[in-house]
Amino acid sequence: MIYAKDINERTPWQDLTPGGEIYEPGTARDFDTGTWRTNTPIFHVEACKHCMLCVPFCPDSAIPVKDGKRLDFDYMHCKGCGICEDVCPFPAITMVTGGVAK
């Protein structure tokens, strides 16, 4: 079986999967879209009520949840759209300029 991690733009044709098939789930997780950010959301855990309203609104599945707690952003995938900040009813998210979480 050929794995996605072994496929890159230098892989010879003999080592690519036939027809461009992929045999694993969610290989896109290895791709960094965090570099796209021009603005960055910052999570203020102390203000968060864990209402989860922001979670389903994230187009990039970049707001992890575990054991009933909303966790800090997945910055490798967050594109900085600001939707989460817009829907959060509490002062738990603020947007800062630039792509880096400060």
């Binding site: 896109a28 290895d30 879209t33 309203l53 389903p56 187009p59 990039d60 599945s61 995938h77 759209c81």
Partner: peptide, 20 residues
């Protein structure tokens, strides 16, 4: 909602849709 968002995601991050 709390229970639903706890499920493992089925569409992962790392896709190339535009921000937002």
């Amino acid at each position: 909602l709390k229970r639903e968002v706890e499920k493992p995601v089925r569409l992962t991050g790392g896709h190339r849709l535009c921000a937002g």
